[in-house]
Design a protein around this nucleic acid. Structure first.
Length: 552
RNA sequence: GCCGCAUUCGUCUAGUGGUCCAGGACAACUGCCUCUCACGCAGUAGAUCGCCGGUUCGACUCCGGCAUGCGGUACCA
């Protein structure tokens, strides 16, 4: 491929200026050349990419896009590639790339090629590919698919104002490019002069007029747009970098990407991309497109945004993120106690279904069941309750030992010494009522410390006259009966409460109140057996001393 | 404004012309379990399939219009 060095460019007017279209004639029937690129069905290796921009933490919607790409790649036995789209140097955020990699790794979304692991189609960071884009812009220029535009941002702004004053909207397109400063409107020698002079310029795509462009989307079917409504997008910026539009086509082509699965926000620019494949002569290997529906905020209908997370009490990001400039912190799923399996399962089902009633699906099953056909067309609202439920389900599958290891540091922070064995036992006992490991302390504190106060409501309801006598009896039983579950059960429940016709609920709940401080918790005798004889007696005695005999 | 996409229980969704007086899940509610709170289990309620027309013997499913929502309309991705 010819690759003239920068500055050596020549404006070639291979075709006369028939390429400079006039405004569409309203009296002429709009006969249009239809461009529909059909896909060749020959076997081709499935290669997909996740191509985030490192402008901040990875949004959960982006995570879902990555997941769908991953599921598709794995299922098809293809390749999953991580490419960083950092063509906008002004929006670079330090740490964002590392964050993206860490987040996807946490979720179990693995890559075959990418910035972090390399591969034979590298480099995988667009800023590292900078030298290769220029030649493609030149190819388009040479072939008449693009032109130089010298208009400065201020000139563009002025033009927009001018149009606005007439209640019109300015768009740099086939109807307006004739009035702008570009290689289509300026004489060739003037264009050459400016280029030789080093005047800043951008390269714009020259959309052919009156052309219907049909994009075949795997999720939505054919989407057709007319080129007269599309603007001449900048492909190559004055800073020497390509825009997303150019870079993404060049990269997808050179990386032999077979399917582009991306967010719905790209649908409006898909016709441009299709035209670019045609302009480059790459129709035969153009990837197939699938535009994913958006993730919506739980209230209202807007797109889920960063602010919503902390406002509505759930994370919008996979991992905690601290804005390096403002220090502002956004919380992540991982730090909130979500398990990666739960996040993956929940995200997979937000916009896709397996075609049956199964809801609990691990990564392997998702890979097996995934299909683009079953992706929804409309946006999905994020639901916190369902997210909690998923986490609950997956938490139950984790071992008591694992849970204990999450809990041990929490206990240590509170200055509590407890053996791992004991913590494992408590975790096993209480796991089923948890959604998150963070709830452990609230649910189990009484296994580690005696109550310091008694819930007034529970006292009013359960600590009735005569209760100090019953509690003294409990202590007596504990002191005289072997400290075993069955023996205690017989002595306390059967021989004392039932045999004497006492109210089981009142006595057992008062005992619970004495031991726990309120009326929650697991089976009472199991609790007693767990915290031990001495501790139980001490707590009951303390309740008697503190609460005293109530006065009716 | 213009262009595009979307629209089934509160939410996620099943549904590809008759098998749908629309099925499942989460949430809600009721009950069971039980010494309590949870968990679990069982059940109840919840959708005139956005609206209006059309095609058809028959439409949630096809077509058109409208409404609403969202997305795009940058030398951002």
């Amino acid at each position: 491929m010819a690759t003239p060095a920068a500055g050596q460019l020549h404006v070639q007017r291979t075709a006369p200026d028939t390429l400079l279209p006039a405004a569409p004639d309203p009296f002429q029937p709009n006969i249009q050349t239809s461009i529909t690129i059909s896909h060749h069905t020959h076997m081709r290796r499935i290669r997909v990419r996740f191509a985030p921009s490192p402008t901040g933490p990875l949004h959960i919607g982006g995570v879902r896009t990555a997941l769908y790409n991953y599921l598709f790649a794995r299922q098809q036995g293809g390749d999953m590639i991580l490419r960083i789209e950092d063509t906008d140097q002004t929006r670079f955020v330090p740490g964002a790339e590392a964050y993206i990699i860490e987040a996807l790794d946490w979720l179990g979304i693995k890559f075959d090629e990418g910035v972090h692991i390399g591969g034979k189609y590298g480099p995988y960071r667009q800023s590292d590919r900078k030298p290769m884009y220029r030649q493609y812009a030149e190819q388009l220029l040479r072939d008449g698919w693009a032109y130089y535009a010298f208009d400065r941002p201020e000139a563009l702004e002025a033009k927009r104002k001018e149009f606005e004053a007439q209640k019109k909207t300015f768009q740099y397109d086939c109807t307006t490019r004739g009035m702008m400063e570009n290689s289509l409107s300026l004489p060739a020698d003037e264009v050459q002069r400016r280029l030789d002079n080093g005047d800043p310029y951008v390269v714009r795509f020259k959309f052919p007029a009156d052309t219907n462009i049909t994009v075949h989307d795997l999720i939505r079917g054919d989407v057709t747009m007319n080129s007269n409504l599309l603007d001449d997008k900048v492909l190559f910026k004055s800073d020497g970098m390509p825009t997303y539009h150019l870079a993404n086509i060049v990269d997808d082509h050179t990386m032999e990407i077979s399917h582009v699965i991306r967010g719905e926000e790209w649908l409006p620019s898909a016709p441009l991309h299709v035209m670019l494949y045609r302009a480059f002569g790459w129709e035969d290997t153009m990837p197939q497109f699938a535009h994913l529906p958006l993730l919506l905020k739980p209230d209202g209908n807007g797109k889920l945004s960063k602010r919503d997370g902390d406002r509505l009490g759930f994370p919008v990001f996979p991992l905690d993120w601290v804005n390096p400039e403002t220090g502002e912190k956004s919380s992540g799923y991982r730090e909130q106690g979500y398990l990666p399996e739960a996040v993956v399962n929940m995200l997979a089902l937000l916009g896709w279904n397996p075609g049956n009633d199964q809801e609990l699906l691990g990564m392997d099953e998702l890979i097996k069941l995934f299909s683009i056909e079953h992706i929804s067309k409309s946006g999905a609202k994020f639901n916190v309750e369902k997210a909690k439920w998923f986490n609950h389900e997956y938490l139950q599958k984790r071992s008591d030992e694992w849970l204990a290891d999450q809990f041990l540091p929490q206990l240590k922070e509170r200055g509590i010494e407890a053996s791992r064995e004991y913590v494992v036992k408590v975790c096993g006992m209480m796991k089923e009522r948890l959604n998150f490991p963070q709830e452990l302390w609230d649910q189990t504190h009484y296994f580690f410390v005696a109550p310091t106060e008694y819930d007034p409501k529970a006292v009013a309801k359960r600590w009735k006259p005569g209760m100090t006598v019953h509690m003294a009896k409990v202590i007596e039983i504990l002191n005289t009966v072997p400290f075993e579950y069955d023996a205690l059960h017989k002595a306390l429940l059967e021989d004392y409460i039932v045999a004497n016709g006492y109210n089981m609920g009142q006595i057992m709940n008062s005992l619970r109140l004495a031991v726990v401080g309120t009326t929650v918790g697991p089976d009472m005798l199991t609790l007693v057996m767990t915290i031990g004889k001495e501790e139980t007696i001490a707590r009951v005695q303390r309740a008697i001393d503190t609460l005293k005999e109530p006065i009716e």
